[in-house]
Design a binder for these strands. Sequence first.
DNA 1: TAACATAAGGCAATCGTTTGTCCAGATCAA
DNA 2: TTGATCTGGACAAACGATTGCCTTATGTTA
Lengths: 348, 348
Amino acid sequence: MPITLKQLADRVGVHASTISRVANNDPGLRISPATRSRIEALLRETEYRPNGIARGLKLQQTLALAVVIPDVTNPLFAALFRGVEDGASPRGYNVVLCNTDGSPDRQRAHLASLTARRVDGVILASTFLRDPSVRWLRQQRIPHVLVNRFSDDGLDPFVGSDDVMGAKVATQHLYGLGHRRIAHLAGQPTVSTGVLRRRGYLAALAEAGLKADPELVVESGYVEDGGARGTERLLSMRDRPTAIFAVNDMAAVGAYSVARRLGLRIPDDLAVVGYNNIPLARRLIPGLTTVHVPAHEFGIMATRLLLDQIESQQRPARQVVFQPELVVRGSTVVGTDVELAPAASMRE
Amino acid sequence: MPITLKQLADRVGVHASTISRVANNDPGLRISPATRSRIEALLRETEYRPNGIARGLKLQQTLALAVVIPDVTNPLFAALFRGVEDGASPRGYNVVLCNTDGSPDRQRAHLASLTARRVDGVILASTFLRDPSVRWLRQQRIPHVLVNRFSDDGLDPFVGSDDVMGAKVATQHLYGLGHRRIAHLAGQPTVSTGVLRRRGYLAALAEAGLKADPELVVESGYVEDGGARGTERLLSMRDRPTAIFAVNDMAAVGAYSVARRLGLRIPDDLAVVGYNNIPLARRLIPGLTTVHVPAHEFGIMATRLLLDQIESQQRPARQVVFQPELVVRGSTVVGTDVELAPAASMRE
DNA sequence: TAACATAAGGCAATCGTTTGTCCAGATCAA
DNA sequence: TTGATCTGGACAAACGATTGCCTTATGTTA
């Protein structure tokens, strides 16, 4: 329904191509000042904007990116998306959002649909290890960047943080507080964060000279419910752990509710460390000690890698790895929840 | 880079249009079984998918919708988006997400860009009262549905809940508990939810025969910080309110932190009711009594209205209004936080 | 005055699909 | 044998913007 180049041309009495050149400021165009200003006036008056579809067909670019994540209601991914949009919007790109709920089938379906739509690039944060979808993206030569999780090592541009190090620091923190039976609510072995955080946990124990008890590692997955079930199992052992390192914050929340149900106090009876530092972490009582993951920055950086790749027409295969940072709160050390403590922020 | 119809045609030795008809199952096509099966085999083998841009240009439809919201890191809008995607994806649509951060300028810019992209429809949840952007959508005849907030009464298809009623029920709840000095952390008068919830609050007071004290209404906006500042002002009055009805949950969270700082216990010294029932509400301690807003259902319903509108080519101008529901938790009534109470869910 | 240069735009192909129309050959009836 | 009908597809015109090349009219130079 919006006005087309042809209609404008008929109104000015010139050819459509001339309008196009004026609108795009073609430097090679020689045109009389009078005609130019008539055209420019009309462009302003009609608020002409070229039809993006036609433009896309001709120029072979859509100015659209896609973000594929497990679930945007997870704050980590919501922040990631914001980062992408904040990076893409100023450069003229729109962003399509796709949720997979962790299903490889839905992921495949989404990618197929995005490919048909010819988005200029894809940011993927929902991959499994050795993910067929990623190989497919590579094969189709669709510019893409993996975020947070990766698939096959080193083959794709990637933005994330050092999960091994993060898990190690978290575990060392617990060890330093005197804990000797430290459990791990683990992620699936099919997801890179699951594998790497478990590895970091084990490495920290080894460096500390602690023998790793296989019973202390239970697979909880990334949701509250799994965390609760895993914690129940851990706390029903004869020789209970005194501390839990959870693969992410939601699993840690599951641990909170079980501890509460069993009447165990955090951190005195059970210390808990999470991962991601979602907004909820500082609102829990006590606040949840956790490893900060700069999701928003991930999004910005991933977009930068992606757009550079698109605009330069080559694969940089760059990997950007952030150093994780431990945020200590009341779930491991009493008295650290300063921001909420009455005395600390009393203004009177 | 993907294969085109023309290339396929060359491989089978027929005209591109024939491939197209086979791929689209054109009922009027007369073709020999042999040729048909050769073409079908090739289509499967190459996993041919038509170029969505070319298709869009020809068919004047992109199979893309857009969702424009203030901020996806707000759980309400994240859930809304999921609803939209869940409604749109099975019908073959992709969804572009745009965040405005409440800025009319960014909203306008996004809508302009979406229009240039020729999305098939827009779901808008970030409107102000008498929003120029909405008029513009109407003028451009772009199918759209307003969600949660509306702009000019009745002119556009709308999905939301009865904000006056919700606010009324919330206020009546507080009145029923014996509160007589009930304050309101209000939204901006430029946003429909702000106006309507304030109206519901006032109506409840009036019906109860309570005189409304203008000092008890302070504009906090929809963020934690505003809620905290508003609460500070309310609690510094000589005749303090004993209860607060907040325009949304985040403002209520601000009230929590101020109450805590001042050493006031919730609900004994101060009762608090929020609005939206974001996931955080049940995690606060005590749990936040709030009015449930079915954001996910909003998204699904809005998508239905939008797609019906698009596919039937006419403006239904339907309005779907959900009845809100009060969720009572510990911030108004002690002992209602059952899901977390030790005794209630102890399994041993 | 003829050849040439320059200014100011026009022409038409192209991107990949879709779809109304047309056509050549085969088959059939008379 | 001559039309008429049917089969099995081919042709080409869109959709709207971009862009390399061409054309026309005017002015300049030899």
